[in-house]
């Protein structure tokens, strides 16, 4: 099994699927010759040609809207939006068309596209290169939203996404693009969209997160006393999300902290915590807590770590929930 970081895993998975399915086309800004600004599509144009790995004009609405058309016409487009902050122009095409075509046409027209989008902060980037808009897309019926945090999850989820008959927003947490490597199986495997992963089993408190904060949560767990046993859940899929996994865990632990980078208000943590109180009310020993970004614009990088849910803030929330 080769060792890969997140970038390499996504790159080789794209190649794997392009080899297997000639309907798959990759399109976006700088994805061809340059291999993408994060090099996620490196080498794909050389291998599969400029017809299947396409440097498009600089236009996100164009990328998304034409991907909708490609999908309608029987292709499997995998557009890239260079940074989550530039989803803006693509939003109309994504939510008003990609997400709605199945319903609009009563199943006659479907849009199997997977849009890949680097997401999140922590890399000292300029404005609009560090946001976390996953809840916005999860809120739109008709879209699936995933955010793997590890190379092997990325492979399984990306194959599931490309093969899914419906549109999937595939968020790639850029802070962990190259932060570590792990073995990624050569086998063809998918991870079901909507299935969470229990990263570590525990008894006293459930911590639910996704994307790069998984690693901040692990660091926070190191700050806690040894006898505190945390069940860490990496949601992986934001919509649909694994309600059963989270509910089962919270019924066991009676306590829960949800962690995400996005602003607190209307962040996906709100959905999770609301579902927990609906389904675990009598099991709860403490109110569900959220450690999230503040309800402000993501600051420029001098202050980004003060904004983001770093380990000390997560550890403190866990302590308080335990002491309640």
């Amino acid at each position: 099994m080769p060792e890969m970081n997140l970038v390499q895993a996504i790159n080789s998975t794209l190649a794997h699927e392009m080899e297997r399915d000639e309907r798959v086309v990759v399109l976006g800004e700088d994805v061809g010759l340059n291999g993408g600004v994060f090099r996620v599509t490196e080498g794909l144009q050389a291998r599969f040609g400029a017809e299947r790995v396409v440097d498009t004009p600089l236009a996100e609405s164009g990328i998304m809207g034409s991907a909708v058309g490609l999908a309608m016409a029987g292709m499997r487009p995998v557009p890239e939006i260079q940074f989550e902050g530039f989803l803006g122009p693509a939003y109309d095409q994504l939510v008003n068309h990609a997400a709605r075509y199945r319903t609009r046409s009563r199943g006659a027209i479907t849009i199997p596209l997977t849009v890949r989008v680097p997401v999140g902060g922590g890399i000292h980037a300029p404005e609009l290169h560090s946001d976390s808009p996953e809840a916005i897309y999860a809120h739109h019926p008709g879209l699936k939203v995933v955010m793997p945090s590890t190379p092997s999850d990325a492979k399984g989820l990306l194959l599931a996404a490309i093969r899914d008959p419906d549109p999937v927003v595939f968020f790639e947490p850029k802070r962990v693009y190259r932060s570590f490597k792990e073995d990624v199986s050569d086998e063809d495997y998918t991870i079901e969209i909507g299935k969470a992963k229990v990263v570590s089993e525990g008894e006293h408190v459930t911590v639910v997160t996704w994307g790069a904060p998984v690693f901040q949560c692990l660091a926070a767990m190191d700050e806690l006393p040894e006898d505190v046993s945390v069940e860490l859940i990496d949601l992986r899929s934001i919509y649909p999300w694994d309600i059963d996994c989270v509910v089962e865990s919270v019924r066991k632990t009676g306590r829960c902290v949800v962690v995400h980078e996005a602003p607190k208000t209307c962040g996906f943590g709100a959905e999770i915590s609301s579902t927990i109180q609906e389904q675990c009310f009598l099991h709860l020993q403490a109110p569900v807590q959220r450690v999230a970004g503040f309800d402000t614009v993501m600051p420029y990088y001098k202050l980004e770590l003060e904004y983001m849910p770093e380990a000390p803030r997560i550890a403190e929330a866990i302590r308080q929930v335990l002491a309640y």
Binding site: V257, P287, F294
Partner: peptide
Amino acid sequence: LIRQRDTMRTSSLG
């Protein structure tokens, strides 16, 4: 938002 600023917290317990 004032509360978030003054406590640097988003969790109500904090």
